[in-house]
């Protein structure tokens, strides 16, 4: 469009028109594109409201073993310790987000990606993990093992 002006150059009037046109195009496109770009980026995923999940049934797990269960949109790890108590942890390694597993031989939680080791309570013991795993509350309802977020103090 701007390529075919053939009015004598240097006139302030022409400048003004160019400013208006250029500014207008930039401003309108910015004001149209900004909402679209914000729209295209998905909003942060809400925690889907999951606060409680049935991780399994009593008797599914042998003592000194663990199993992965689904807690909302992320995996959780349910452990039955050798002394018969249940423990539930987030199964997402705090290092690079691999899914951890319970190692009966070590009696510890182990991340296979970079050999990270956590205690049964989720404490990061050795290897790269920078933070402990989040621990969840476990209680029994009938023969169902119910896992909930720890109550905020």
């Amino acid at each position: 469009m701007s390529g075919e002006q053939n009015t004598p150059p240097g006139s302030t009037r022409r400048r003004a028109i160019e400013y208006f046109l250029g500014g207008g195009i930039l401003a309108t496109f910015a004001s149209f594109l900004y909402p679209v770009l914000r729209y295209v980026v998905p909003p942060p995923v809400a925690d889907l409201g999951v606060n409680e999940v049935v991780a399994g049934k009593v008797g599914d797990l042998k003592p000194n073993s663990g199993a992965i269960f689904r807690f909302g949109s992320s995996p959780g790890l349910l452990i039955l310790t050798s002394d018969g108590t249940y423990q539930a942890l987030s199964a997402t390694c705090t290092h690079l987000g691999c899914t951890v597993q319970y190692r009966g031989d070590l009696r510890q939680v182990w991340c296979p990606c970079h050999n990270g080791i956590y205690g049964i309570d989720g404490r990061n013991i050795s290897g790269p993990p920078p933070k402990p795993l989040t621990a969840y509350d476990v209680h029994l309802r009938g023969d169902e093992i119910v896992v909930t977020h720890k109550r905020e103090a």
Binding site: P35, R38, Y39, V41, P42
Partner: peptide, 9 residues
């Protein structure tokens, strides 16, 4: 409600 500028679109 949740998507930014979703109401606008």
């Amino acid at each position: 409600t949740k998507v930014r500028y979703g109401w606008l679109i």
